[in-house]
Simulated scan of single mutants.
Amino acid sequence: MERQLPKNVRQIGNVCDEPKIYVEDYVDTFLGQLQEKAMEKPVAAALTGEITKCEDKVVVYISGAIRAEDVEVEGTNLKISEEIWEKIEKEQKEYFKDQKLIGWCLLETGHPMSMNRGAQELHRKMYDQENTIFIWKDASSSDEMYFAYKYNELMQIGGHYIYYEKNPQMQNYMINTRRQNGVTPSEMVEDRAAKDFRSAVRQRMEIKEQSQSSKLLYATSALLVVVVLAIGVSMMNNFERMESVQQSLEQLASAKGTEAKVDDNAQVNDQRVNGENENQINAQSEGQNQEETTENQNSETVAASGSVKASSDTKKTNDAKSEGTVPEVSTVQEQLSQSDYYTVKKGDTLASISKKTYGDTGHVEAICKMNGLSDGNLIFIGQKLLLP
């Protein structure tokens, strides 16, 4: 099964070159500890791990490091004795039995890494395999260079990754060799992979909690918006109901004014008819004493008869009113001429009606009294107002 690329990584430099180099965090820590020991003399370490392919790319995983106790420096040449190599191979089988030797690291100070110092010849002698790794570190600074053995020579690689995983083999090696390597227990690091894992889990939990809080806040906001909309709709409905009630009150007030107007008209007409009846009756009695009656007198007699009939109808109306029956408005309106009314038009007020009819605004109160209006503003379009 093909190994998957680590997900928890930290990039160092430009990683566009191939092979892709992944250095485990414990290995990087161990090389940093050896860097302090290289201030006195050069220190070397063998690298263990695997060279494989992942996603059609060559990937080198450096999962372990074994210190070479002594490195012989003769001018520009480097030499590691056979005894040191035997010890490295023994420790590799003891601590990293499922890994292979895939490269080495040289830590020194005062000299920039130079190919003519024999590093390339030493690498070719120890690791004559494609894509094996050589690391050079400056003990006095943080400078470092990574090389891959390709086309029979060491070629510099622009960058690499530091990855974080459980690495009990390297951790066990660091604990058991801390005395011979000069690393005290206080310099040992805790299980960084576990710590980073816990940190990643904690961050995911925080992100999840923030997401849940955001969802709750969104739901609360949406509910609040719905409540506000419901209140707004209820207020609009109540406003429409209030307007309807107000219109009903206005119509009732107008109907009351019309009823009062009808009563007044009935009373006025009753007075007029009674007066005409008296006059016509006198005229009729005088005509009976005369022998000749002209055509005009006959007309007056007919009119008198009509007036008597109207008086009789009016009397019946008043009798019905005294008995609690209200006469119809149309019966009263038929007895008045069109000139006795004013039909309200759009934009009319009692003041404008008074001015149109009488030439001034002094008859507003009389119009109100005549039509039984308690409020002069309660008139509507099409309403017929009785003029005084």
Rank of each mutant, 00 (worst) to 15 (best):
V273G: 01
S186D: 14
T301C: 05
E50F: 00
L386D: 00
E328T: 12
V59P: 00
L47I: 04
I353L: 01
E243L: 15
K37H: 13
E209P: 04
D98N: 15
R202L: 08
K20H: 14
M155W: 12
T361C: 10
D196M: 12
N152P: 01
G287A: 15
N265V: 07
F147V: 10
D263V: 03
K208A: 12
N296E: 13
E291Q: 10
L387A: 06
F30E: 10
V245C: 04
A266V: 00
L386E: 00
S354M: 07
R204L: 11
Q335Y: 08
V302C: 09
E292F: 15
V43S: 08
I379T: 02
Q335G: 11
T52E: 07
D313H: 05
A68G: 03
R204E: 14
K321H: 09
L122H: 13
A45V: 00
V302A: 15
E40V: 13
S213M: 07
Y358K: 07
E240W: 15
G110E: 09
W104T: 02
D70T: 14
E323P: 02
I12S: 06
C368Y: 03
G64P: 06
F134G: 01
E40Q: 10
T184N: 06
K125M: 02
E83N: 04
V183D: 00
Q33R: 11
F147D: 02
V227S: 08
S221M: 12
T29G: 04
